[in-house]
Amino acid sequence: MKKHISISFIILSLLLFSIQAFSQAKANGLDLKKTVSLLKSDSNIVILDVRTPEEIKETGIIKNAVNIDFKANDFKTKASALDKNKTYVIYCRSGNRAGQAAQVMSDMGFKNISYLKGAGYAELSKELNK
């Protein structure tokens, strides 16, 4: 009897873990080439810059991008005001914060989130201006 209960508990635990892992959406990391292609092919995509205002002052911002500073305490509040059904591509300086922001937004219920992985503003700006 104890053996059946133990096996049932293990199976139930694995099932619950699988359901939880499946239900958590994952943000999609894109390389520079795929990101540029996506942005050039769909003008309805919202480009989200998650760098600080200081970084933007130094370098500028991608045309039509929306800035929400990922390091700011109100990131989740500002992000929650965005339309969760739109498609977003997120970038930062190097790709790290963009990935973190994408996962946070995915966890908040955003459906179509991608981020520039392994590159940032400088590379994206250069490629979009070619």
Rank of each mutant, 00 (worst) to 15 (best):
N64L: 02
N67D: 11
A122V: 13
I11K: 01
L12C: 15
M105V: 09
K130R: 13
N73L: 05
L82F: 06
S43K: 15
T35P: 12
P53E: 07
K126I: 00
D42M: 08
M1N: 11
R93P: 02
I68C: 04
K3Q: 12
T52C: 01
Y91K: 10
K130N: 13
K40M: 08
F17W: 06
N44A: 08
N112K: 15
S94K: 13
A72R: 09
S106W: 05
N67H: 10
E58I: 08
G60W: 13
I5L: 15
K117M: 10
A27Y: 03
L14A: 08
K117V: 00
A21S: 12
A79K: 09
G120S: 04
K40C: 05
R97E: 06
Q103M: 08
K40W: 10
N85H: 14
A98K: 02
D74K: 02
I68D: 05
S8M: 14
Y88P: 06
Y121G: 01
A21I: 13
A101L: 01
S23P: 00
K78G: 00
L30W: 04
L128R: 09
C92P: 07
G29M: 04
S37L: 14
S43M: 01
G118C: 05
N64Y: 06
D74F: 07
N73W: 00
N64S: 13
K84F: 08
A98L: 03
L124Q: 11
R97Y: 12
E55A: 11
E123S: 12
D42Y: 10
A21Y: 14
K33D: 11
L15D: 01
G95C: 08
R97F: 09
R97D: 12
L128Y: 11
D83Y: 06
A101F: 00
K71A: 10
L32K: 11
I19M: 09
Y115M: 04
S114L: 04
S8A: 15
I62E: 03
K78W: 04
K71H: 12
E55H: 06
I68M: 08
D49K: 05
A21R: 14
I5E: 11
I56D: 07
A72S: 14
K111N: 12
N44F: 05
K40T: 09
N112L: 03
V50C: 02
I62R: 07
N112F: 10
T59L: 11
A81K: 14
Y115T: 01
I113P: 08
R51A: 02
K71D: 10
L16D: 00
D74Q: 06
S18E: 05
S41Q: 12
E123F: 02
K3S: 09
C92A: 10
G60K: 09
D107K: 14
L39R: 07
L82P: 05
K78F: 01
N73M: 04
G120E: 04
D69A: 03
N28L: 14
R97G: 01
I45Y: 07
V66M: 14
K86A: 11
